[in-house]
Amino acid sequence: MDELDLNRAFTLIEPGPVVLVTTHDGARDNIMTITWTMVLGFSAEFAITTGPWNHSYTALRDTKECVLSIPTVDMIDTAVGIGVCSGTDTDKFEKFGLTRVKGRHVKAPLIKECLANIECRVVDFVDRHSIVILQGVAAYIDTAREEKRMIHAVGDGTFIVDGDTIDRREMMRSKLPSGV
């Protein structure tokens, strides 16, 4: 095996799909692209990494709510584009032709074009690691959407796309906690 620079080791353990995080700061909506996401256990708890360098971070801190919108591979250029411009001077919904959908539990909007949306409340900030812990309060999925493959960031400007689904539910059934 060839040695890999330890600073690049994170590219080997890709944590989850790229998500678009919407916020509402009391005056306007914004979207940021997050490439580090994580599920916390078998509940609707999630973690994302972000901090004061992102325009949306202040809204997350102040309102303690957001929406995780999950784009699919046909939206990769939109996801990257959102990530490389700032909400300080750009209405990203308008720039990228995205449709706001009013949430039922939070002021941040859902994104109609995404495969799924999860309304969330912020339950903790782990400042040492720039982690925001979220509790899902409602989830929605567009089952009629033809494209369902999600994108995953490797961390160096490249992405991996979900592939074939392999079903081993029956084999694992006795090992999963009840309700899963």
Results as ranks from 00 to 15, higher is better:
Ala79Val: 01
Val73Ala: 10
Thr50Asp: 02
Ala79Ser: 07
Glu113Phe: 03
Ala79Pro: 02
Ile111Val: 14
Ile34Gly: 02
Arg61Cys: 03
His105Trp: 12
Pro52Trp: 04
Gln135Ile: 03
Asn30His: 08
Thr50His: 07
Cys120Ile: 13
Cys114Glu: 02
Ala59Thr: 05
Thr72Ile: 08
Glu119Gln: 11
His24Asn: 15
Thr23Gly: 04
Val67Ser: 09
Ile118Cys: 11
Thr33Ile: 06
Leu115Met: 09
Trp36His: 15
Lys92Ser: 12
Ile70Asp: 00
Ala27Cys: 02
Val106Thr: 06
Ser43Asp: 14
Pro109Leu: 07
Asn117Leu: 02
Glu45Leu: 05
Ser56Thr: 13
Ile70Ser: 06
Asn54Ala: 13
Thr58Phe: 01
His129Thr: 08
Leu98Ile: 00
Thr78Asn: 10
Val101Pro: 01
Val132Gln: 03
Arg121Asn: 11
Thr35Phe: 03
Lys102Asn: 13
Asn30Asp: 13
Ile31Arg: 08
Ala47Val: 13
Ile31Trp: 04
Val67Leu: 09
Val39Arg: 14
Gly26Thr: 11
Thr78Phe: 06
Cys85Ala: 07
Ile70Met: 08
Leu60Val: 01
Val123Met: 08
Asp127Gly: 02
Cys114Gln: 02
Pro71Arg: 06
Gly83Pro: 09
Thr37Ser: 15
Thr58Pro: 00
Gln135Glu: 14
Arg28Val: 06
Lys112Thr: 01
Arg28Leu: 09
Tyr57Val: 01
Asp89Gln: 10
Val80Ile: 12
Ser56Asn: 02
Gly87Ile: 02
Lys95Ala: 10
Met75Glu: 14
Leu110Tyr: 11
Thr90Ala: 00
Val122Pro: 01
Glu65Trp: 11
Ala79Asp: 05
Val101Met: 09
Ile82Trp: 05
Ser69Gly: 03
Asn54Met: 05
Val80Glu: 10
Thr49Lys: 07
Leu134Ser: 12
Ile131Thr: 15
Ala59Met: 10
His24Ala: 07
Ser43Tyr: 14
Cys66Gly: 06
Leu115Phe: 11
Lys112Asn: 08
His105Tyr: 14
His105Gln: 04
His55Met: 00
Ala27Ser: 05
Phe96Val: 07
Ser69Asn: 15
Gly41Lys: 13
Asn54Asp: 05
Ser56Met: 01
Glu119Leu: 09
Thr63Ile: 08
Asn117Gln: 10
Gly26Lys: 12
Phe93Glu: 05
Glu65His: 05
Leu68Lys: 12
Leu134Asn: 14
Asn117Phe: 11
Ala79Ile: 02
Ile48Asn: 13
Thr99Asp: 13
Ile31Val: 14
Lys112His: 10
